[in-house]
């Protein structure tokens, strides 16, 4: 049978920065084809397709629908796969190969991680579960 895609409302203008991204305006309604854990969702808007940041989308059925996981305060061990320098105050600066504990895996691809006594946001894209090899 037909595949029913979930509809999401775009909550802020998004301009694309690479060819694979999909630009959309505040108020547009897109259909989500695939959700990547790193916060990029593959969407279609009219006759166009491309990746959009999950943070710019909210379910059309209402903001109550939550797919968000609960935080895990014990921490889930991960290793950083790339150097990253935070751009906002609440982000962590980490080098490649550092061990961190993931506290909260947020759908927007910015996970709450703990390094020693410091906690902040870090891109899920640059994290890999400890003990697993890169895909």
């Amino acid at each position: 049978g037909p595949i029913i895609l979930q509809s999401y409302r775009v909550i802020a203008d998004f301009e694309k920065n690479s060819k694979s991204e999909l630009a959309a305006k505040n108020g547009d309604v897109v259909e989500v084809v695939e959700k990547s854990e790193n916060g990029w969702w593959f969407c279609q808007l009219r006759n166009k397709r491309g990746w959009m940041p999950a943070a710019y989308l909210e379910p059309l059925d209402g903001p109550d629908e939550s797919e968000e996981q609960d935080p895990n305060y014990e921490g889930d061990l991960h290793i950083t796969t790339k150097d990253y320098t935070g751009e906002l105050d609440d982000e962590l600066n980490l080098k490649e190969g550092e061990n961190v504990e993931v506290i909260h895996k947020l759908l927007d691809g910015w996970w709450v991680v703990r390094k020693g006594s410091i906690t902040g946001y870090f891109p899920a894209m640059y994290l890999q579960k400890s003990g697993e090899t890169a895909p």
Binding site: F14, S20, W40, P53, D108, Y126
Partner: peptide, 22 residues
């Protein structure tokens, strides 16, 4: 076929959304 996602992390939530979450 699904294309590969962009190589950079997605942008943080728009400023107006971050304020709402606080």
């Amino acid at each position: 076929t699904i294309k590969r996602p962009p190589e950079n992390p997605p942008p943080r939530p728009p400023a107006e959304v971050r304020r709402k979450q606080v």
